[in-house]
Measured scan of single mutants.
Amino acid sequence: QWKVGDKCSAIWSEDGCIYPATIASIDFKRETCVVVYTGYGNREEQNLSDLLSPICE
């Protein structure tokens, strides 16, 4: 189960590419979260089910 502060990978809606991110907040009722893309600072809402394991850098 994901928690705030977890590192993950998420698909950015603008280009469909996968980027490393950190979970900033979680809404368990809606099963969504807000991620912050590492190195970019962009925030975006994602479905918890769409999150991927962190990418090894």
Rank of each mutant, 00 (worst) to 15 (best):
Q1E: 13
Q1V: 11
K3H: 13
K3M: 13
V4S: 02
G5D: 12
D6I: 07
D6Q: 00
D6K: 00
D6A: 00
K7G: 10
K7N: 10
K7H: 11
C8T: 00
S9I: 07
A10G: 01
A10F: 07
I11R: 15
I11V: 13
I11W: 10
I11Y: 09
W12S: 14
W12T: 08
W12F: 11
S13T: 10
S13F: 06
S13N: 04
E14S: 08
E14Q: 14
E14H: 14
E14N: 05
D15R: 09
D15E: 02
G16Y: 09
G16N: 06
C17L: 15
C17M: 15
C17R: 15
C17Q: 15
C17A: 10
I18G: 04
I18R: 12
Y19L: 06
Y19P: 02
Y19V: 04
Y19R: 00
Y19N: 04
P20W: 12
P20I: 11
P20V: 10
P20L: 11
A21Y: 05
A21M: 03
I23K: 00
A24M: 14
A24H: 13
A24V: 15
A24R: 00
S25A: 09
I26K: 00
D27V: 08
F28L: 12
F28G: 08
K29R: 12
K29S: 12
K29V: 14
K29L: 13
K29M: 12
R30E: 11
R30H: 11
E31M: 15
E31C: 09
E31A: 13
T32C: 05
T32E: 05
T32M: 07
T32F: 08
C33V: 12
C33F: 09
C33R: 00
C33P: 00
V36A: 05
V36H: 02
V36P: 01
Y37H: 03
Y37R: 01
Y37M: 01
T38I: 12
G39A: 09
G39M: 10
G39Q: 09
G39D: 10
Y40P: 05
Y40F: 14
G41W: 07
N42T: 14
N42K: 10
N42Y: 14
R43H: 10
R43P: 06
R43K: 11
E44Q: 04
E45Q: 12
E45I: 11
N47P: 09
N47H: 12
N47I: 07
L48F: 04
L48C: 15
S49P: 04
S49H: 09
D50R: 01
L51D: 02
L51W: 04
L51Y: 03
L51M: 04
L52C: 05
L52G: 02
L52I: 07
L52Y: 10
S53E: 14
S53Y: 11
S53Q: 14
S53C: 08
P54Y: 07
P54L: 07
P54E: 04
I55L: 14
I55H: 10
I55Q: 10
C56T: 15
C56N: 14
E57D: 12
E57R: 05
E57M: 12
